[in-house]
Design a protein around this nucleic acid. Structure first.
Lengths: 201, 201
DNA sequence: CTGTCCATGTAAGGCGTTACATGATTGT
DNA sequence: ACAATCATGTAACGCCTTACATGGACAG
């Protein structure tokens, strides 16, 4: 389970023990673009990790309020994390609901389909602008980092988001253009992927 | 719920009513790369669609065996499908577990991380080779199709898979190279995305 | 004095997976 | 004779989401 290991990952780098609340912020500030996690899920997963002995809890009692729980990773937790990080994952399933709309687009007029695609393109453009901003800001911080390799690796995942969004956007624009010109011939279909499949095998 | 609408989509194009079994094959042969569905799920969703009046069932009784059920889409079902297809979707969550491995790669040696990344790259190369094969075969069939637009739209989704895999592969190769050279400087980080964020906004 | 932040959780439901179970027909 | 295909489903579990619920501290 990936969420477990992402939590262990954060705890492995944290100089101080973290609360569930801290972890929620850590997710939102760094890995949300490829692994969103919500609050309930984090608390339940922390409980499961504690039960497995992969994290330990220091309870801070607070009068009149719920106890505050500080989590730190154990040696077993580090071993489990290391094993998971260094083991290739089985193939994952991808789900991309907007492609269902394209696939069954025969039920729509050109205008209806174009409308959906243009909204999709706009959403990606906005996300891309945001990523680009975060990315340039991150580049500045790499110079002064005390562990440039670890920081660079985290920035790499943002690059992944940027390049995959760019590729999705190029694809969308080419679909939009082909719908507008009404040219669905095989020659035109082959344009986008460059007709160079062999180069990638 | 996307699965509901994918099923309605298949039924909307089918000249004859389909069984749950037929639908399972339809998924596996065409949309599995962006919306996999398993058998149990399809049967449960068909029951839910029937309860909502979006599909109707003809029961074929067969001695000694379970009844065979033939599903067809209703007018309400077509209306619901049309509405869903023509409405932009809210932003979807992406989950890409392998990026967790990169993000927390500070816990691994170069060799360990490279091993994981190379496995990942190989899996994508294999998938890409398969997609390319299916894609070229599809191009041949577009000429003779009686509805070239609808067929082209379905092929577009395969293009999406190909271009996004190509982009993921390029990214992986660049990460591998930067790990091997040990050069994580901002200048090198900016190479992959071409440093032209503004062009995409 | 209102809202946001800190910090915790529970409950219920939806979607998806895996495993189990049945039994005729068709192909090798 | 055996396996694959056709065709149906149930059971149980796992992960994630949404909504609900509490309550102090602090800032505007």
């Amino acid at each position: 389970m990936s969420l477990k290991h992402a939590i262990l990952g954060f705890l492995s780098f944290a100089p101080e023990p973290l609360t569930g609340y801290d972890l929620k912020k850590a997710f939102d500030n760094s890995v949300r673009h490829f692994w969103p996690a919500n609050q309930s899920q984090i608390y339940r997963t922390l409980a499961a990790l504690a039960e497995d002995g992969l994290v330990e809890i220091d309870v801070v009692e607070r009068a009149e309020r719920l106890d505050m729980k500080l989590y730190h990773i154990t040696e077993n937790g580090r071993a489990e994390l290391h094993h998971w990080l260094s083991t290739p994952l089985p193939p994952q399933d991808y789900r991309e609901a907007s492609l269902i709309q394209v696939f069954f687009g025969g039920n729509l007029t050109d205008d209806e389909l174009l409308n959906v695609l243009q909204h999709e393109a706009q959403a990606i453009e906005e996300r891309l602008a945001l990523y680009a901003e975060i990315y340039t800001a991150s580049l500045d911080r790499i110079d002064q980092a005390n562990n440039p390799r670890a920081l660079a690796l985290s920035v790499f995942t943002l690059e992944y988001g940027i390049t995959s969004d760019q590729s999705a956007l190029n694809w969308l624009r080419s679909v939009i253009e082909r719908l507008q010109t009404g040219n669905y011939s095989p020659a035109n279909l082959a344009i986008l992927i460059g007709d160079n499949h062999e180069n990638n095998v």
